[in-house]
Nucleic acid binder design. Structure first.
Length: 948
DNA sequence: CGGATCACG
DNA sequence: GACGTACGTGATCCGA
């Protein structure tokens, strides 16, 4: 007796949209979003695994929509016209859905001019006609029309997300009518997503009641004439044509030509290859293990370890349903191995490949990644599973630290690099680092391009920015280890000493070095296990995957490029500043009547206020006179010549010590360029910060300071190009607070401060424009009457009136501030348009100063942070966009919050400028559509100064 | 090592 | 009843 055939038809297109919204935004080791693909893969697995079970499939096919157009558009041109574009991180998953289907060796149906629903209907009827049972894997309400039995062959539906079978009773529960009348109900109620008109004002309730009463759509429409006068009657009569059109649109075509014969859809279970290749490519490791192990259904998926995915029920995406945190054995430093032979190194490389997720840490001879030499590398594959590979050690621990003992046995550096390179560059192995940008730059100098990567420091930042203070903003490894693991790692000081007694890492004895280095990798691996799963649960994946993680290699490359600085020019400036400073100092001493240290605010204060008798106040804590710029400017206004001279002296000494002298020091002897280091976790708002040297505060506001910018130059034959976002924060404020007047002004390309002046004062002249500008900035920073009064040199009462006028003219600003603060008080954090969180733990402080400080920062953070997100997105897209255009010689060198600086061949300027402008202007898209344009200003020249 | 000052967006 | 006023950074200097 032949078993009954059972055809499963998978509605792939509708499944992936649902999977996308139900599953966390996971990514594979390449950073490609694969959340929906993962859900789809596990679903196919489960279905294929049910082969030959009771009611399971004997035959199976996947049906997908080929395009958004179908024959229904010819009937009704507005059909599906209101469909929003799919989310940006779903788009790259569409082709992967097809890859997954092929990997399972399943037939795939995609036909032009009809929709997946029509193909499903056609196949279902064909199978039914042959006496086969059919299960439609979908929860689409349109398909419910097909459910039921005919000639002893039944069609049902399966909602895999709810693990629910839908048969006639379920359809009746939902629509109040049997399946064959569902089309009539749908025609009456319409569908806003598909833009099916239906009868205006008729919803599911009324529709099913009418059909149930009258037995069909036509009967219901005919009966309208005899109804007693009502809104409903009018509507039925008036929109009859709409309903009839809708009936045609919701009717499924059951007679489509069938491209694949149903007997060819026979299911063979779960294949080995090429499924294994697909699972491996996307890091679906637990499925891969299951495949290796034979079969078994993926009940407890653990893929993309450690971002745990739960495909059943609702857990996994909801805030309250946290996964238990992983627990590990206590750190055991004696478990680490010192790898000193090629044989052991090969062993560890194999172990890493099998582990697929490893932590990496490099030990170097210095802190500067551009100068440091590689001293060793540590790897971790699990808790207490870590090793240290010494490569440049001088001391094996046999002698004292002041006496070189014999050089220890080590794998030769070149051999080790050659052996490790394929592992560190392998797509199949995720490399985790704590501040991995550093390791990227060190290893890049040895010819290794590490990828794919994860970074525990940035994970921590994207989850917990603002939650704690301290060294690296609370995201340093020691702090993270304490906080998440309750473990104190060996400190660098304990290993290398401190101050004058500090030794380079290469002189640390191997046993000690192994304990320290391998522990760092071990701890990093453990931290990743803690932090990565939180990303999906706490909605941090968007910002991490889409903004910050892609930026790591980009910023690393900018740091390696560095920028050329004209040393001779700086030296000349230093000299000029020195002579001028000496002259000023002499004059100041004369004016003071005695010699003193001009650079000492304490001494200066005493000279100004005690000796010379100027009036001024003491500063709170230190009991010291304040002598800052505003005080000196006031004294100067009162005619004190010495104040002028001191201001001038300060400017010159500042420029000399901080810039002209320091920048010469910062020139890298190997590259002849200056390589700053950007911190991706430096600013709570998500901005980058720049150190060693800080290239984000090079003078520009005064002519004398600007001379320093003239020393930043391109290589021969090249120019520097500077591209700025103009007024980006004000534009974002106009968008986020929804201020029509400001949005309009930006749209028209108006002078925004002049427009503000007109709105506030009725006219814009030099004076009112300047005041309006101050007020505009005050808004971005969280306004107070005293602050504004101080800036505008007016009384607080007057300032308050201005603020009131501003809020009255732009009520959106006031409600933005109010709503932002409400949200922060409620949730504890603010959010940018791209979902970056900043926490404000002191927002509810009893201390007023503290609380108000938090409030001002909280008002500013979404604006400053959104601006940071936008330029980061532009940076991540910039080089691919330029390379696509064949511009391979353009180098992105610097970022200064709203400005990007490039170095490029003179001949490339014309081609590169529009691309740079477009990438920057469109950086918010498609994730966020701004209601204001983003204006870009571009300049080029033979120096950074000339490029402005 | 903290405070004061000042360079930038 | 007192608090102390614009957001975000980093480098340098002085002086305890």
């Amino acid at each position: 007796m032949a078993d009954k055939q059972h055809l499963y038809l998978v509605d792939g297109s509708s499944y992936i949209f649902r999977a996308y919204h139900r599953l966390p935004p996971l990514t594979d080791p390449d950073g490609t979003p694969v959340g929906a693909v993962y859900g789809y893969t596990t679903m196919l697995w489960k279905l294929a695994d049910d082969l030959d079970k009771a009611d399971g499939p004997t035959h199976l096919a996947v049906v997908l929509d080929k395009s958004s157009q179908s024959f229904r558009n010819e009937i009704y041109d507005q059909y599906k016209a209101n469909r929003p574009d799919p989310p940006e991180d779903l788009v790259p998953q569409f082709p992967l859905i097809r890859d997954a289907t092929r990997a399972f060796s399943l037939p795939m149906i995609e036909e032009e001019n009809v929709e997946a629903d029509d193909m499903i209907a056609s196949y279902a009827r064909e199978a039914q006609a042959r006496g086969w049972d059919v299960t439609i894997v979908s929860s689409d309400k349109d398909l419910m029309q097909l459910v039921g039995e005919k000639d002893g062959a039944k069609i049902d539906m399966l909602d895999t997300m709810k693990s629910a079978r839908i048969y006639v009773d379920e359809v009746k529960d939902k629509f109040g009518v049997p399946p064959e009348l569902v089309g009539d109900v749908l025609a009456l109620m319409g569908d806003s997503v598909d833009n099916i008109p239906g009868i205006f004002g008729v919803g599911p309730k009324t529709a099913s009641k009418l059909i149930d009463e009258h037995g069909s759509l036509t009967a219901a429409l005919d009966a309208a004439e005899d109804m007693k006068k009502s809104k409903l009657k009018e509507r039925l009569l008036e929109h009859r044509k709409d309903a009839e059109l809708s009936r045609v649109l919701v009717t499924l075509r059951e007679d489509c030509p069938l491209p694949i014969a149903i007997e060819d859809m026979k299911l063979d279970g779960i294949p080995g290859e090429p499924l294994a290749a697909f699972l491996e490519k996307h890091g679906f490791t637990s499925l891969l293990r299951r495949l290796d192990a034979g079969s078994g259904s993926p009940d407890r998926p653990n893929d993309l370890n450690p971002a745990k995915v739960e495909t059943k029920g609702d857990s996994g995406t909801s805030e309250g349903n946290r996964q238990p945190l992983p627990e590990f054995p206590a750190v055991d430093r004696s478990a680490y191995e010192t790898v000193q032979t090629m044989e052991r190194l090969e062993h560890w490389i194999a172990k890493c490949r099998a582990a697929r997720i490893i932590a990496v840490d490099t030990e170097t001879s210095a802190l500067d990644a551009m100068r440091a030499d590689l001293v060793g590398i540590s790897l971790a594959t699990g808790a207490n599973e870590a090793c240290y590979i010494p490569l440049g050690h001088l001391n094996d621990g046999g002698g004292g630290s002041d006496m070189f003992s014999e050089k220890p046995e080590q794998v030769p550096l070149d051999d080790a690099v050659a052996a490790l390179k394929p592992l560190l560059e392998s797509d199949a192995v995720l490399k985790i680092g704590q501040n991995i940008k550093y390791d990227l730059n060190v290893l890049a100098r040895y010819g290794i391009a590490v990828a794919p990567i994860d970074d525990t420091m940035i994970l921590s930042f994207d989850l917990d920015a603002g939650r704690s203070e301290g060294g690296v903003g609370g995201h340093g490894m020691d702090e993270l280890s304490e906080r998440h693991l309750g473990h104190t790692p060996l400190s660098f000081k304990e290993v290398c000493g401190t101050g004058r007694k500090q030794i380079p890492f290469g002189e640390v004895p191997l046993d000690k070095a192994t304990e320290y280095a391998a522990e760092d990798a071990d701890v990093t691996w453990r931290l990743h296990q803690h932090l990565k799963p939180r990303l999906a649960i706490e909605h941090g994946a968007r910002i991490y995957e889409r903004v910050d993680r892609p930026l790591i290699p980009v910023v690393a490359q900018m740091e390696r490029h560095g920028i050329k600085v004209d040393r001779a020019r700086l030296a000349k400036l230093s000299e000029e500043f020195a002579t001028e400073t000496a002259k000023l100092e002499k004059t100041i001493h004369e004016l003071a009547g005695k010699e003193f240290t001009v650079g000492s605010p304490k001494q200066l204060g005493e000279v100004l206020f005690d000796d010379l008798g100027h009036k001024g106040g003491k500063k709170g804590k230190s009991g010291q006179y304040s002598t800052d710029q505003s005080v000196l400017e006031r004294l100067s206004g009162d005619g004190a010549e010495i104040a002028d001279k001191v201001l001038e002296w300060r400017q010159l000494t500042k420029l000399k010590s901080t810039y002209t002298d320091a920048l010469q020091q910062a020139i890298n002897p190997d590259t002849g360029r200056v390589h700053t280091s950007y911190s991706l976790v430096g600013a709570q708002t998500g901005r980058l910060s720049s150190t060693d040297p800080n290239l984000q505060n090079i003078p520009i506001r005064t002519p004398i300071g600007r001379q320093i910018r003239e020393a930043f130059v391109p290589e021969n034959g090249n120019v520097l190009l500077a591209a700025d976002y103009s007024q980006i924060e004000l534009r974002l404020a106009a968008h986020m607070a929804d201020v029509p007047e400001l949005k309009e002004a930006f749209a028209e390309g108006e002078d925004i401060h002049a427009r503000t002046a007109r709105e506030m004062y009725g006219e814009a002249d030099r004076d009112t424009r300047a005041r309006a500008k101050t007020i505009n900035f005050a808004i971005l920073y969280g306004i107070s009457r005293w602050g504004l009064a101080g800036r505008l040199k007016i009384e607080p009462d007057e300032a308050q009136e201005l603020i009131d006028t501003y809020f009255k003219r732009f009520p959106g600003i006031q409600s933005y501030i109010h709503e932002t603060l409400e949200t922060v008080r409620e949730r504890g954090y603010s959010e940018t348009l791209f979902g970056r969180k900043t926490w404000f733990p002191r927002i509810g402080s009893k201390n007023q100063a503290e609380r108000q400080g938090s409030e001002r920062a909280a008002i500013n953070a979404p604006i400053q942070g959104t601006s940071a997100d936008i330029i980061k997105r532009a940076m991540a897209r910039m080089m691919p966009a330029l390379e696509d255009a064949g511009l391979e010689h353009v180098r992105m060198l610097l970022q200064v919050h709203d400005e990007l600086v490039f170095e490029l061949p003179e001949g490339d300027v014309e081609a590169a400028s529009p691309i740079i402008e477009r990438v920057m202007a469109e950086a918010a898209l498609p994730a966020v559509e701004l209601s204001v344009p983003l204006g870009i200003e571009i300049g080029t020249g033979a120096s950074w100064d000339a490029a402005h």
